[in-house]
Simulated assay, not measured.
Amino acid sequence: MARTLPISDPDTLAVAIEALRRGEPIAVPTETVYGLAADATNPEAITRIYEAKGRPRFNPLIAHVSDIEMAKAHVVFSPLADKLAEAFWPGPLTLVLPLNPSAKIHPLATAGLATAALRMPQGFAREIIAAFGQPLAAPSANRSGRVSPTTAAHVADDLGDKISLILDGGSCRVGVESTILSVEGDHLRLLRPGGIAAKDIEDIAGMAVERPVQQSGNMVIAPGMLASHYAPDSALRLNASAVRPGEAVIRFGGAQIPGEEEASVVMDLSPTGDLREAAANLFDFIKRADAAGVVGIAVAPVPMHGLGEAINDRLSRAAAPRE
């Protein structure tokens, strides 16, 4: 089983760097979710990420960097990309940009594409990358397609028998993955809604963020684009207006759902209707409902504005038919 070390321990950073230099993937806390991090330039290390997660290798990984200089050693920044990085890095924004000819990020991490997805995380994860001196590929630290982890205990439950080290930084502040944005000339394309609302990006960029008409499962150019993803074992039912006996209920804004007295579990993402609180609670509540052995999970409607777009994206993928 994996060893869990608190990030407050002064020896944890050195232990983490040693594991990374051996090519081992380790679980690290970020402001979004816990990531399964390994050297993005080392094909053996990247392969171990895919093996631990059971992740399809056509599904690219985000490479995490510690500063803009490290990022520009691997991808080409346009003036628009520079503007966005200056506004939102470090933070929950991933930029998909053309690879530099001299980039050392391995094709296994980019799924062989001519672009790479890069992010600069906040907190201890950034310290690790700076000390390691290379980008870290770090998808969410869970089995592929399952609910993303927002605590070290979530990681241990899902991957504790497949990795050697989990770094415990407490609960993730944002609670949903980063927003993924493709910067193509003067066009911005939203590939995955996430921890930064599209409206905030538009305010900085001074232009609209385009949304694909549809995201085909056969054309995966960034993480989180698979139709079925973030899936619990229990069937998840969206926009519930009534509760079926034995279901778990995840509601929003303090509004009760008819039939709640028949529910096995009732949780509220944010009784006050705060979308940031709702995003931070989302994956933890899905995991708690799933662990309760319920007949299904009924989720009340969540508004689509702001972070609600990311919340609804995760819920729709969690409820999608399983292949």
Rank of each mutant, 00 (worst) to 15 (best):
D9A: 14
R22H: 11
E24R: 05
V28L: 15
T30W: 04
T30R: 05
P43C: 14
E44S: 14
E44D: 15
A45D: 06
K53W: 15
R57G: 03
N59E: 13
I62G: 02
D67E: 12
A73K: 12
F77W: 09
S78F: 11
S78I: 06
L80A: 10
E86P: 00
G91D: 07
G91H: 05
V96H: 03
N100H: 14
A103C: 12
I105R: 00
I105M: 05
T110C: 14
A111E: 13
L113T: 09
A116H: 02
L118E: 02
M120V: 15
F124A: 13
E127T: 15
I128T: 09
G133E: 13
P135D: 08
L136C: 09
A137F: 11
S140G: 12
S140R: 05
N142E: 12
V147M: 12
T151K: 09
H154Q: 05
H154P: 09
G160M: 08
G160P: 07
S164L: 08
I166Q: 08
L167Q: 08
R173C: 11
G175A: 13
G175M: 10
L181H: 04
L181M: 07
V183T: 06
G185Y: 06
L188I: 02
R189D: 00
G195E: 00
A197F: 05
D200I: 01
V209W: 03
Q214K: 04
M219F: 09
A222P: 01
S234Y: 01
A235G: 07
A235F: 03
L236P: 00
R251N: 01
F252I: 02
A255G: 01
P258Y: 03
P258N: 10
E261A: 14
R276I: 00
A278T: 01
A289D: 04
A291R: 11
G296F: 02
I297A: 04
P301W: 10
H305E: 15
L307R: 11
S316L: 11
A318I: 07
